[in-house]
Design a protein around this nucleic acid. Sequence first.
DNA 1: TCGTTAATGTACGAAACGGTACATACATTG
DNA 2: CAATGTATGTACCGTTTCGTACATTAACGA
Lengths: 206, 206
Amino acid sequence: MVQSRDAERTRSELLDVATEVFSEQGYSGARVDEIAERTRTTKRMIYYYFGGKEGLFLAVLEAAYRRIRDLEQGLHAGDLEPVDAIRRIAELTFDHHVDHPDFIRLVSVENIHRGRHLEKVESLRELGAPAATVLDEVLARGRESGELRADVDAVDVHMMISAYCVFQVANSATFGFLFGRDMLAPDVRARHRRILGDIVVGWLTA
Amino acid sequence: MVQSRDAERTRSELLDVATEVFSEQGYSGARVDEIAERTRTTKRMIYYYFGGKEGLFLAVLEAAYRRIRDLEQGLHAGDLEPVDAIRRIAELTFDHHVDHPDFIRLVSVENIHRGRHLEKVESLRELGAPAATVLDEVLARGRESGELRADVDAVDVHMMISAYCVFQVANSATFGFLFGRDMLAPDVRARHRRILGDIVVGWLTA
DNA sequence: TCGTTAATGTACGAAACGGTACATACATTG
DNA sequence: CAATGTATGTACCGTTTCGTACATTAACGA
């Protein structure tokens, strides 16, 4: 082996490749040997750093959620009018989802297993907060000014936006197959992005 | 063995159990031996009737999609005013999804594998049509009367409704975990059902 | 009734797969 | 520079898992 040692690089390379493989093949479908082969290190290191296949998956989940949390926190819409802010949040969320398909697919995998792994990662307990608080503030302003309806809360809105965005990525294969619509095509994406904005604004200003 | 032979019963029992197991464990996670053990027959029969694990999964997919297609066809909203019809369709779709979680989970599994299996089932080529045509008719009527906006098509609307409904089932574990909302609780379900109607109507009448 | 075929059960094999024992090389610190 | 712990590589083991060879039983028509 020519290159020198670098624990951090080994660790993160395993994490990156594992993210790919798990999101492509599911938890059971992913092969420890395949993950190892796709890196510049060996299977031995998976057990050294993560304890085993499940430990690796937990680490992958944690890293992925942490990445999305950081991005959500950078989402500032405080200086926009409520209606514009809502559309902005929806569109940014949309972009974020379609740009990180691996994460979405990973969440799908975890849901198949009914969130069994997620529960084991203590550090992910209150990770939902950021996305909700931003929306909460905008909704409160809109409610006061009378521009936005008052009978929905931040979680309702976030769920609707998430549902639409997640669907784009997570169900593109079957939906595309059944309705002959390629959801990854740029023009289709742009159209869906605009539609999402219309939906959320139309709903909340009704 | 006391009971007499019954090919059809054996076949359909395998199919039912396989539907459960595949939707609970994913394709790779599902064990042929477990599926067999949960039935009154043996593993041998899986190979006799379906050729193998993949053949069984294909049969499960086909049966599940066929079931949903039949239910969609029974969805008649021709005698309602466009706006009411839209809300009706949304609510019925919602009920249908939450009542058939196995199917939704199966679709998730298939999407993880990028629709690789679905493509092999010739008989599922044009299965999307029914859902779209019903919506198409309602949208056309609403467009003429000026009650519904004209810049969206049936697939757009169907996708939005599907996204929201699928999310309820497919992502209840992770979303529930992150936001402490039990999406399976009856009162929450009723609330989300109403919200979906509000969203679609608000959007299309904007 | 008897033979033929569809249906089913049993036992086993081969490969895949997760995991580990053991050896070793690098780096850091005293 | 010695020494000690961190990091890495190789070879292997035990089990699981899909699949199959072979035997057998029920049904049904000639």
